[in-house]
Structures are given as C-alpha cells and as structure tokens.
Design a protein around this nucleic acid. Structure first.
Length: 640
RNA sequence: GCCGGGAUAGCUCAGCUGGUAGAGCAACUGCCUUGUAAGCAGUAGGUCAGGGGUUCGAAUCCCCUUCCCGGCUCCA
C-alpha cells in the first residue's frame, strides 16, 4: 500500500501498516518524536492501521496540535489518579481547553477535596507517567460500553453514550485505556503517557453537569501540560505577569478606585480614576454629537408600571431594585430604553424626523448575583454609554452599519481589536419568526457588507431581538462583552410607538439599542489591563509629574504646573522634602508618562529635561514652549 | 445563586502542631537640601472581617454571617 507525505513523496508500506510504522519508515528519530498522525486531514492514533492511498502527516511536539493532544492525555492520567485515590468517584468529561485541560468528577459522599490535595494527586499522576502506559484504543458496541460503565456505576458515562445513540445514531464507541484506567473517548491520544513532559494541576472549581444549574454540581479540576519543563515554567511566568496587569490590583496601586463592603459590586471612583473617566467621556460626547446622537438625561427611579409595560418586571424583577415613594412603587432602572421611549413619545413624530438618535451615559442598577461580581468587569452599578435609534425599517441596515463603523472608530483609538458575535433568537422571545428572520438577516448582511469576521452565537440574542456584540479579552484571557448593537421590534410594540408616514398613516418605528464602551466601568477595566496601567498621555491621570530638585525649587515648579494647567494639561508637583531619586522612583511606580525635574539649570535657562516613563534620562533639554506644544500634540492626536 | 479557597497595621505580607501580634513600605517628628528608580534616625499605628462556641487560654480549632479570589450558572 502507498501513502503520500506532506511534501508529495509517496511512501510504500506493508499491507495493514500503522501510523507508527509509517513514521518509522521515514526515520527512527521521527518515530521517537511522533505523537499522533494526521490521516486525510483527521487526527488519529499512531497505532491504528492506515487506509491505502492516504495523505498523512506525522504529528510531533513541534506541530500545533501537539499541545492539545498531550493535554488530553494528561486529563486521562488525572482521572486515572483520582480513581485510584478516591474509590467510588464518578467521572464525567475531561477535555483539553485553551491553556490546559480539566476533568469533572463527582466525589463520593464525605470525600471533601481542595487544592491541598493536589500534591498527592500529582504524585500519583507522575507514577502513571513514569510507567509509560500505552494509550490503547478499543472500538466496542454501544451496548457493550453501556454494560461496562453501568456495571461500574459510572452513570455519567452511561448518559453520554445514551446521548451519542440519540443524537448521532452511534452504534459503536471507542474506549481508551491507559494502565488501569479506561475511558469513553473519541481520541486520539499520543502513544503513551511518557509524552507528558511537564504538567501541573492549577485550580479546583464547581461545575454543573452538562452546564445545567438544575443538575448536580461536579468538582472540576483544572490543570495544564506542556511538552517541556521550560514551556510550563514560561507559561506560569506569563500568568504571573498577567496578574500584575489585573485592573483590581492596578486600580489600588494607581489609586483609581476602590470597592467597599458597604456597597458590593459598586466602585468608589477616586480622583485619579475620574480623570480617566472624564477623558473617555469627552471622547464619547464629541464623537456622538458628530454622528447625530443627541444627548438626553433621564431619571433613575421610574414607576413600576413602566417596567410592567416594558416586560422587565416579568423577566428581570428578581434582579431589579425597588422602593416605595409615598406609597407609590418605583423601580430603579436596569436599562435606559423605556426612559428614552418617553422622550420619543413626548410628541407626535413624522417619518421626516427619523432616524432620531438619543444618547445618554445612563446610570443603571442591576442586582447581579453575588458570585458573578468581578472588579470593574461585572458591577451592580453600571454607567452605560447608551444610545437608542428610532428609525424606519428601511433605515435599519444603514444605521447598524454606521454603529459598527462608529464602534471600530472608537476601538481604534485604543488599539483594540474586538471579536464580533452575532447572537440569534433565543428560546424565550417575543415576535414572529418572520420578524426574527428579517432582523437576523439585516444584521448578518450588515456584517457581510462591511466584510467583518464574526462568530454566530445561536440562541444568545435578547428576548426582543438579535444583536451584534463586540468582545475583548482581559489580561488573563477572559472574554467580556463591551459594545453591542441590538435590533428591537418589541419595545416599539409594547409602548405603542408610532410615526406618521408619507401616506399620513401611523407606522411603527424600529429601535436600535447601541452601546460602544458597553459600560464606562467595564471599558475602563479592559483599558487598564490592556495598557497595564501605562495609559496614553491623553488618558493618564497625571500627565506630567514635576520634580523640584530641592525645596527651594518648589515655587518654580508650581508656576510650571499652573502653566500646564492653563493649557489643559494635568500636572502635579512633588513638593515633599525627598531626594530626586525617590521622587523619580515614585513617579515611575505611579506610571506618570512624563517627569520634569526642575532645578537651578532649568530655572536659569527656561528649559526642561523631560524624562519619559520607563526610560532613563537622555539629558536632552527643550524649551518650555516646545515641551508644552509637544505634549499638546500628543494629547490631541490621542497617541497610544 | 452554586462549588472550592481566602480575610492579620493605610499597602504588601510573616506568624509551625492553641500560650496573648511582627517585618518592609507608607504616615508622623527631627536631621539632611537632595540632579533622574528608595538619604538617616526616631515615633505612632491592630476589636487579627463580624458574631457565637470549644478551651485555663483562640489570629490559630468548630459553627454562622459578610465581603473578596478562582471557576460554574446567569448576564435585559
């Protein structure tokens, strides 16, 4: 039989040859390095016989697939170790994931486990790795597999097989055995456990079986594995570095905000944080105005009846805050739209008025479940950069495209490259299928027209319409939704919104909900992590830190600071009686973009010697005028 | 909300198996008048998250509550 290698050479092999045989035929070194084989585009075990005329490619540690393979192997080794250490444990699933793997278990009653148990689990895993256990595959009928797992009390495996039969019509499944452990698994795996060169268990967490909060909570053990000890060490080092960019840590270090038990999930913004906020708000308000969004401001407290009409009462009242004012029940707004609708409804509208675009940096409150709060990323006190567009159906597509372009304009300012998600109709929704077909079609065609890459999130839309979301990752790789553009045919219906058409008949407008930052809180959180606290000049709380050489230069430095303030720049003077070295050090730690030392020389010559953040002094002197105009240029261009 | 972990001075952290709380930085005072990442010395600072229990004795062991961290679910 023949197989074709990636470079086109044809290799002749004995009938029934395996992937391992092919690797050996190419070279002994390759055979030793081989983990698996790609056969006609599918990843397979080396031990399986090759089909005739296949295109093959040997997978080694250098292949991109290698890590996933080895991590999957390590998940099996973890399960093997846990089963030995905790008899009666039930196993469920254990896939490789980005940066590692996990395995979900149901521990027997009374077997409390925590990360304190990792050392002994890891020790047991090492025994399996050292034993160089082969991963051997066995294809069996679904009946045999179910008998086996049912006999062993592995209910989750039985359920998985039942689902394979139901959903995929499976009549056989594959089992993989390494040492004493056999798991239901699609494969493939590397040849044996010795390919796992470095691994570590990283954390433990609860995870619902099948992701369903009504079902059992299993214990998930996370870990990671690499093909060398160095790679593992580098990975752990990278995580440590990423933690230094954590916005909660930097928020404290740079004195931007704090959280307080007196109002969980609600940041207390400090002066430094508000300077960033203010710069963002200015960008937001000028760019909105430029694009025809007119600022409005609406109340936070609104009659409960409004929330009944909007549907929030039915769907979200458990997550809303309420109060009574003179016996009148009021709800604190969780969204701005019903309030903006009141402005729309305040007079008769004509088709000539549309589109009408309102924007508001609206403060909404949502009682997010306690376990979901996360620094600035998930708060209960949310300042949305909200906007609502009221338009005709014909205008929707152009408005959506304009929103997307506006979004990309804003993200470009920060150098953000968001990923896009199109979320389609959820199970629970309002409106007809025709309406949803149309709405999803409009969004999809807008994305296509703009040539944008996006992922489809089936069933993740809002109850009133589909949406396009802009996502960004934080320093540890967690994805957060920032911007969103949502189509809404429902609110106009519920609130009986109309406009007079050219035919003098009442027509129903369509609403587009739009946020670009998403919320100021979350956006600033991402911003902090993205820049690691090294904010571009236009955003930096302190733009120039003035450092008098000694007390006698404090007056001159203050004069300079006043002058910078006159030009709209944020400067502060460090008047403490401390050494220059110390003041520089602390300005560096505060991540001030520029430090100007003011001493005799500067005062005499009317110059400054700007030191740039994280750089050592270059000694160049510039006139004060030139230095200021350079700063102003840098701010005006919003240089990153 | 659920599972696991945590909470010690303003900050970062030490405090082994129970014997009554400690460091560095910050703060304050004094000296130094400082030239590009920490000048020197001294002083002060704690209901060990809150509450209950076990014990002669609890930061330490047990229970409850609050908040935080890592996940899961949720996220209009």
């Amino acid at each position: 039989m023949n197989v074709t290698l990636p470079d086109g050479t044809v290799l002749e092999l004995a009938e029934g040859a395996t992937g391992g045989d092919a690797a050996l035929a190419i070279g002994e070194g390759l055979a030793r390095a081989a983990l698996a084989i790609e056969v006609n585009g599918d990843l397979r075990d080396l031990a399986r016989p090759l089909p005739d005329d296949a295109r093959i490619s040997i997978i080694t540690g250098k292949s991109p697939e290698a890590l996933e393979l080895v991590r999957h192997d390590t998940a099996h080794v973890l399960a093997a170790a846990v089963m030995e250490l905790y008899p009666g444990v039930k196993i469920s699933i254990g896939p490789p994931i980005e940066n590692g793997f996990y395995y979900d278990f149901e521990f027997p009653e009374g077997a409390e486990i925590s990360d304190a148990d990792f050392p002994r689990i890891e020790a047991k895993m090492k025994e399996h790795i050292k034993a160089k256990e082969q991963f051997s595959r066995q294809d069996v009928t679904t009946g045999e597999a179910m008998d086996k797992f049912a006999h062993e009390g592995q209910d989750y495996k039985v359920e998985l097989i039942e689902d394979l039969i139901k959903n995929e019509g499976a009549d056989t499944v594959s089992l993989y055995t390494n040492g004493p452990f056999t798991d239901l698994c699609r494969g493939p795996h590397a040849t044996d456990t010795s390919k796992i060169k470095a691994f570590k268990l990283t954390s433990i967490a609860g995870a619902y079986w099948r992701g369903d909060s009504n079902r059992t909570m299993l214990t998930r053990i996370y870990g990671t594995a690499f093909l060398s000890k160095e790679d593992l060490a580098n990975h752990l080092e990278m995580i440590e570095e990423a933690k230094k960019r954590d916005h909660r840590r930097l928020g404290k270090q740079l004195d931007l905000f704090h959280f307080n038990e007196l109002s969980p999930g609600s940041p207390f913004w400090h002066p430094n944080g508000m300077k960033i906020w203010g710069a963002l708000q200015e960008l937001w308000s000028t760019e909105n105005a430029r694009r025809g969004f007119n600022r409005v401001k609406t109340p936070i407290l609104l009659d409960v009846d409004l929330w009944k009409i909007s549907g929030h009462w039915d769907k979200y009242r458990d997550n809303m805050y309420f109060t009574d004012i003179e016996d009148r029940p009021m709800g604190i707004k969780p969204m701005n739209c019903p309030a903006h609708i009141q402005i729309y409804k305040n007079e008769r509208r004509s088709y000539r008025d549309l589109p009408i675009r309102y924007s508001e940096d609206g403060l909404v409150h949502r009682h997010e479940p306690s376990g979901t709060l996360h620094g600035l990323m998930r708060v209960r006190h949310i300042t949305q950069d909200d906007a609502h567009i009221f338009c005709t159906e014909d205008q929707i597509q152009q408005e959506v495209i304009d929103c997307l372009r506006f979004g990309f304009f804003i993200y470009e300012v920060f150098g953000f490259e968001p990923s896009l998600e199109l979320s389609t109709r959820p199970e629970q929704r309002v409106g007809t299928d025709e309406m949803w077909d149309r709405a999803e079609g409009i969004l999809e065609s807008a994305l296509k027209k703009e040539n944008l890459d996006y992922e489809v999130n089936e069933g993740d839309g809002a109850f009133y319409g589909p949406k396009i979301d802009l996502h960004m990752k934080d320093s540890l790789g967690r994805s957060w939704q920032l911007g969103t553009v949502q189509l809404d045919f429902s609110m106009p219906e519920r609130f009986d919104l109309t406009y007079t058409g050219p035919d003098n008949e009442d027509q129903r407008p369509v609403m587009i909900h739009r946020a670009l930052f998403g919320s100021f809180e979350r956006f600033i959180g991402i911003l902090i992590e993205h820049f690691g606290g090294d904010f571009p000049l236009w955003l930096a709380p302190t733009q120039v830190q003035l450092i008098p050489v000694s007390d006698k230069h404090n007056g001159e430095a203050q004069k300079l600071a006043d002058r910078l303030a006159d030009d709209g720049l944020r400067a502060i003077v460090d008047t403490r009686t401390e050494s220059v070295g110390k003041k520089i050090r602390e300005a560096e730690l505060a991540k001030a973009p520029y430090m100007w030392v003011v001493g005799d020389e500067e005062v005499e010559t009317g110059t400054v010697a700007p030191r740039k953040r994280h750089q050592t002094e270059d000694g160049a002197r510039v006139s004060i005028e030139d230095a200021i105009s350079a700063l102003l240029d840098e701010v005006a261009s919003r240089a990153r």
